[in-house]
Simulated assay, not measured.
Amino acid sequence: MDNLAPLTLGVTLLCCVLGVLGLHAYTSGKAQREALVDRLTSTGQIDKGPQRRFRGLDRRLRRTKTGKRIELKLAATGLDVTPGEYLVYVLAGVAALWLIAASVLASFFGPLAGLAGVWSANTFLNWHRAKRTEAFISQLPEISRVLANATQAGLSLRTSIAMAADELEAPAGEELRIVADQLGVGRTLDDALDELAARLPSRELVVLVATLILSNRAGGQVVSSLRNLTVTLEERKETRREVRTQLSQINATAYAVPAIGVGAMLLVNSIMPGALDRMTGSFIGQTVVIISLGLYAVGFIGIRRISKIDI
């Protein structure tokens, strides 16, 4: 009992010393890291890039499965946004839509607008990914032509990919630059190309990747394979353009149908102020609204399914 006070004092001093040593190690390590980043940035070996927001949230989000899926989608879209920034922007947009719908229409439409905001955010990523994939597909004939010319000149396939990354514009140049960087750090050609095909899924890219991998493994005639593939990709490109033109009216109808429904609902509420609030004040009215919105969603999905043609 008499030794308790000195023991407590000794443990407290030891904890203070360890805390000071830990703080010193943390600050010195952080200073060394910043000095290394500044040195590499000044020599042009790395690009420091813009200062990111919500870095703590971004680090925690990347450790989760949801964060990894968001990161994969953002990488496929090519957007300069981190998963943490995307999550904060989505939550802010959902909150804004919730408040606007609840104040303009009725409180019942607040949660529905929030769900619509989450769906819209995911749809935006899918649309941007599809748009980038389409742009990449349109450049595939040029990619095959550049790789064939470089291979015919005696360059290896790895060097040809790096040269094509420098010559081609985005998104093909950016994606091939990622493949070239992965090859530069020791990844195999099969893994790098398979990851490219998973990032931008399309039949044309799968054919190109399979051609390059098989030619690299078997040591076949890469030049002749790429020449034939270039002609095929050009023909598929023209076919896709014709089909897209023929289906443009159907796609516009798919978006016009739900827009007309929402516009009619706003028109009724403007003619008879408070009509939506009174209608959704009962269980029957809420059920009818949900069924109506469900029918509009079914119509939208049905029209999109009918107009979807795989080429």
Rank of each mutant, 00 (worst) to 15 (best):
L9M: 08
A165G: 07
A25P: 01
L267E: 01
R129S: 12
G302N: 08
L208D: 05
G49V: 12
G10R: 11
R69W: 12
L13R: 06
I271D: 00
L115K: 03
A165M: 02
T82A: 06
M163E: 06
G274N: 00
V268N: 02
G261P: 01
L23A: 15
R52E: 12
F54L: 10
V243M: 13
R304Y: 03
G56E: 11
I250M: 13
L9E: 08
L293N: 06
S202E: 06
T82M: 05
R62H: 07
R304P: 02
Q51A: 15
S270L: 01
D166A: 09
Y26D: 07
L87C: 07
D166M: 07
L140T: 08
R63M: 09
G302W: 10
A297C: 05
G29W: 13
V223E: 14
L97M: 14
V11Y: 12
T188A: 08
F136C: 03
T66L: 13
V179N: 00
G84V: 03
P83E: 04
A192S: 15
G154K: 02
T230Y: 01
G299E: 04
P258S: 02
L14D: 03
P111K: 00
L155W: 11
K308Q: 12
D58R: 00
L196T: 03
R69Y: 09
S307Q: 07
I250H: 11
V104L: 05
